[in-house]
Amino acid sequence: MQEAAVQMPDTVPGQSVISAHHLDLTFQTNDGPVHALKDVSLDIAKGEFVSFIGPSGCGKTTFLRCMADLEHPTGGEITVNGVSPEEARRSRAYGYVFQAAGLYPWRTIGGNVRLPLEIMGYSKAEQAERVARVLELVELAGFENKFPWQLSGGMQQRASIARALAFDADILLMDEPFGALDEIVRDHLNEQLLKLWARTQKTIAFVTHSIPEAVYLSTKIVVMSPRPGRITDVIDSPLPPDRPLDIRDTPAFLEVAHRVREGLRAGHGDE
């Protein structure tokens, strides 16, 4: 798996939405430096659905946070839409979905989705129009005036996705968005997410620790391993774009899942 680090991107750099080259990130802690990311290179093309998978501490969330300008790499370079992550953040190039829905209990569902629009200074009419549209998109139309605590966990997470979609960013960064939900709700949301992706043509970077979830959703699966956090394998999914839930029982699916598992095991063995 050593060649993984130097694996060349298969897309033309000019077209890649997110492009990282030899990215390093070292945290200084009381117990000495921790290499959260080491020599991470990756290109994500427009319209791709890329999953990051690996054990905890492998840097998958850190990598995502670097794209979002929430962490600052100590080496290498990373561009988002061809500019630095900070510029991308200032131009509101991406929507970020956290592990918890993080909805404000004092705002209605509509109010929560409207929040980033208010911050970004959209007009009142535009806000209302967009809130209605994205709530429709995540199938929450009619819940606009409900409060978050009146909704189930899955619905809350859908609202938080709607919130990330509301301002029409082309990139969606998702950090284990369904990690706290139960299996059945999760399946349902995965299916909806794929439909949403097909309809909106967004570029999605998706952090998960579930192999079936990664394989089911992605066009590209990035396997990472810890100490130091690095990419050990990049798998281009051979699965067709149209994926019903029962695709997970097909041999093709199982083969990709097997390869991901092998990658994870290999990364684990490196220690």
Binding site: R65, L70, Y96, F98, G102, I119, F167
Partner: peptide, 10 residues
């Protein structure tokens, strides 16, 4: 997380 969220919205 909530503060990061505000940051992602600039």
């Amino acid at each position: 997380m909530q503060l990061d969220q505000m940051r992602t919205w600039n």
